[in-house]
Amino acid sequence: MMRKKSHWGLIGEYVFLTIIAIISVFPFYFMIVGMTSTSQNIVAGSLAFGGELFKNFQNLFSNNLGFVRALGNSAWIAVIQTILALFISSLAGYGFVIYHTKLSNRVFNTLLLSMMVPFAALMIPLYRMFSALSNTPFEIFGINTFASVILPSVATAFLIFFFRQNAKAFPISLVEAARMDGMSEFNIFTHIYMPSSKNTYAAAAIITFMNSWNNYLWPLVVLQSDDKRTIPLVLSAMGASYTPDYGMMMCGIVISTLPTAILFFFLQRQFVQGMLGSVK
């Protein structure tokens, strides 16, 4: 018994998805047009290409806001943060499912609470804590270091929650079989769970990298010297002008969105159905 309308269904899917895709991509078209336009044309909403591309790029790299250095800083922070966060949070998310007890469930629920507080409320005490590290041996983690930007986002309830929800679909029988073979608990995690959860890791990596790359409030407060500034801070400084140079900014914005877009394009390939089946 095959589906009868599958052909029409597929066409419907194409039409629907194409419309959604166009709506989604339209602003990117606007941004790319913006790279070639003058500020005035951008504000006026012009959708035709202009001839200012070279000049806009020149302005972007010649002003003293340090766009290139900020790209490097952001990349550094995002990569390290993503690796650490994925490892530590997936460890916890997996642990909460596999070693599920009443106590661990309570611990998990308490952790959930941590993502419910608006960050603005935590910022000043957090800043105080990091600034207290100045002039101590722990200064390397204190304010104005990359570590101070990364540390608060290494373990997040959000990621732990996500890993936990996904681990729920992970067949416990695989774990038990591995135990029979005498595998250690940690090895089961790294050898059985991790390889079979590429889809989860891919999604988590995209989200973490993106959040880190776009993180604004905390880096703004904690990074003091301008040679440490990240991309969002530099873009913000560019935009705060009586007469912002939007052409130049669009060049900066397009460049700064590329890493996440490229990362997404490569990682989304992990979203292939039946991954679990192949492990079985």
Partner: peptide, 18 residues
Amino acid sequence: IALGALLTACSGGGSKTS
């Protein structure tokens, strides 16, 4: 590598700060 990088990134930053 990640931890090492974190530490170097920080220590580099730390000394400059002071």
